[in-house]
């Protein structure tokens, strides 16, 4: 039977490659005559990462893949939801600069209520607006944090 490669193997391999990249970058940094130079400490950590990554990759190859895979079966629906939420959060942060916190946050909260399958629409609208307004004024006036604001000019 063909052995299935687990996520642990890929993570181990990724750690090895990442460690090599860091090691190469660290070697480009200047050396010190006494004590440690700026590259020595990251280089040491990178070597530890490479070793740990190698151990993990080999261990994953030798282990019973079927048992390891049980807990990490790919769930497309789940992955799609997580991706959408992450993408939505990045878009919210990006748009905040242009639209402002107060105008944008209620829509982002509504989007999230939809993502978290909260079915009471009226309540969702009320909560979205209330939370955004309360947080805006709390941070602007009590904590003196200048949250991004919408401005035409």
């Amino acid at each position: 039977m063909k052995k299935k490669i687990t996520a642990d193997f890929w993570f181990g391999l990724g750690a090895v490659l990442f460690g090599i990249f860091v090691l190469v970058q660290a070697k480009k940094l200047p050396q010190a005559k006494m004590g440690i130079g700026p590259g020595d400490y990251p280089a040491f950590v990178a070597i530890v990462i490479i070793s740990l990554g190698l151990i993990q990759a080999v261990k994953a190859l030798l282990s019973d893949a079927s048992a390891a895979q049980q807990g990490e079966a790919f769930d497309a629906r789940r992955a799609k939801k997580v991706f959408l939420l992450v993408f939505g959060t990045f878009a919210y942060v990006f748009l905040m600069k242009y639209v402002g916190f107060l105008l944008l946050s209620p829509f982002f909260l509504l989007f999230q209520f939809w993502m978290f399958v909260y079915s009471n629409r009226r309540k969702a609208i009320v909560i979205s607006i209330t939370v955004s307004v309360v947080l805006y004024f709390l941070f602007m006036y009590a904590f003196q944090v200048l949250l991004p604001r919408f401005s035409l000019f």
Binding site: T89, Y92, V93, F116, V117, V131, L135
Partner: peptide, 17 residues
Amino acid sequence: NILMPIIIILCVVGSYS
């Protein structure tokens, strides 16, 4: 499902501040 969306907003405001 009410708490989690509010937590994201708090996280955003927290890191911005």
